[in-house]
């Protein structure tokens, strides 16, 4: 089985049923997951920050890092696997976006990441059918391409599905 490990700001997609896509320890980062039933392909981006205007050079080098550049980049990669360019028919799931406890507005990066991603998805007419966002814990996410099943884990908690 091939494992595609995504680091912070990475994105990737596959239609190989033997593959698994995985990302470790989402804190305030959000994992955007695209599942396309038509082509049986799955993609994921590990988004760290809501807005690329703070560093255009970083966005050019690592588009998956920012919400506003990650979605178009992931869609483009999915399109190479035969998915609709505008994301039509793609199922979206979101997870991550945690915050430390008693956080103030400034430190709610998790929440801002999720909001920014949703806003950009709306602009494509897309929306998440399932989400596991917020809370005060980190999440590791893996998806097997064949089953299309999203599994989450966090130290000290039993695994769960999304």
């Amino acid at each position: 089985m091939g494992q595609i490990i995504l680091g912070v700001g990475d994105f990737g997609a596959s239609n190989n049923p033997d593959d698994e896509i995985k990302t470790f320890a989402l804190g305030s980062c959000v994992s955007v997951i695209f599942l396309d039933p038509k082509t049986r392909s799955i993609g994921m981006a590990h988004v760290a920050l809501p807005d690329s205007t703070i560093n255009k050079a970083k966005a050019a080098e690592k588009p998956g890092y920012f919400a506003d550049t990650a979605i178009p980049a992931l869609l483009a990669q999915m399109a190479e696997l035969g998915c609709d360019k505008r994301g039509k028919g793609i199922i979206v799931k979101l997870c991550g976006g945690a915050n430390v406890m008693d956080t103030n507005d400034t430190f709610q990066i998790g929440k801002r990441n999720a909001l920014s991603i949703k806003k950009i998805l709306w602009s494509y007419g897309m929306g998440a059918i399932a989400e596991d966002l917020g809370g005060n814990y980190s999440r590791t996410v893996s998806i097997s391409i064949s089953a299309g099943q999203v599994t989450l884990s966090s130290p000290g908690k039993p695994h769960w599905q999304l």
Binding site: G27, C29, V100, M101, D102, G135, S138
Partner: peptide, 15 residues
């Protein structure tokens, strides 16, 4: 927040 905690306690502290 950047995903580098030390396991089960990560994020479970007050700001």
């Amino acid at each position: 927040m950047g995903g580098y905690g030390t396991g089960s306690d990560s994020m479970r502290y007050k700001l």
